[in-house]
């Protein structure tokens, strides 16, 4: 993403200027296609087109924000993964071929796995591994996580896949849980691509005192 400037804001990353100024459209297209392949989500399920304001009020799409977060947190690994993807993207069995690349035993493949893990996590969970930490080699779990910006959590796709509301963001009515969710386990419902207008500038936390308000 030439020309784009990343600034740290509250532990997360926001963009100054549009992502399109830096990463070219081909990079982004590749990232979206790679994301669909890695996550197993369909293009319609991937919340790539959800919009969010950055710190200066510039409207960005989630794929632009996530692309930049991955590139800034895992620059080498992410670049290598995109290169690996470009080598297989035109193959009809690209998921299988990419899977085989990832399964190799050499250090380069492990770097690819690290990057692929982050791509999946960011879409499914809205978190990535803190690059200063490593997952437990036995379980794969990692206590060192980096969250996204305010508002991104509610687009964590894993919840949609399992037919559950994102915790804290139920759009269902009382008692919905009696019924089996109306999803097909391997092809969940598509996101409604309603833009969210979340200001990345958090207010000063902990200063609200409003006793009483009834």
């Amino acid at each position: 993403m030439k020309g784009a400037t990343a600034i740290a804001l509250g532990g997360a990353t926001a963009l100054v200027g549009t992502a399109a100024q830096g990463a070219n459209a081909t990079d982004h297209e590749a990232f979206i296609a790679l994301s669909v392949t890695l996550t197993g989500l369909t293009a319609a399920e991937l919340p790539a087109m959800v919009e969010q304001n950055d710190a200066l009020g510039v409207r960005l799409k989630l794929y632009e924000i996530y692309f930049e977060r991955l590139r800034s947190s895992y620059p080498a690994e992410f670049r290598e993964l995109l290169v690996a993807w470009r080598e297989v993207e035109d193959k009809p069995d690209h998921e299988l071929v990419l899977s085989e690349k990832l399964a190799a035993m050499d250090p380069a493949a492990e770097r690819l796995r690290v990057a692929a893990r982050q791509v999946v996590k960011i879409w499914l969970l809205s978190t990535i591994d803190d690059p200063r930490t490593k997952p437990d080699v036995k379980t794969g779990r990692n206590n060192g996580q980096l969250g996204g910006d305010l508002g991104q959590y509610q687009y964590s796709a894993i919840w949609k896949l399992i037919g559950a509301p994102v915790p804290g963001y139920s759009s269902f009515s009382h008692g919905y849980w009696v019924n089996k969710p109306g999803i097909k386990l391997d092809a969940g419902a598509a996101y409604s691509l309603l833009p969210i207008s979340t200001d990345l500038l958090l207010p000063d936390i902990g200063t609200i005192v409003e006793l009483p308000d009834g």
Binding site: T37, T39, G40, L102, E110, R113, L124, G140, D186
Partner: peptide, 18 residues
Amino acid sequence: VEENLNPAEPSTFSIGKT
């Protein structure tokens, strides 16, 4: 999700439909 994406375990590392 993390246990299916353990970088140290290439044999169980899964992507896509799997």
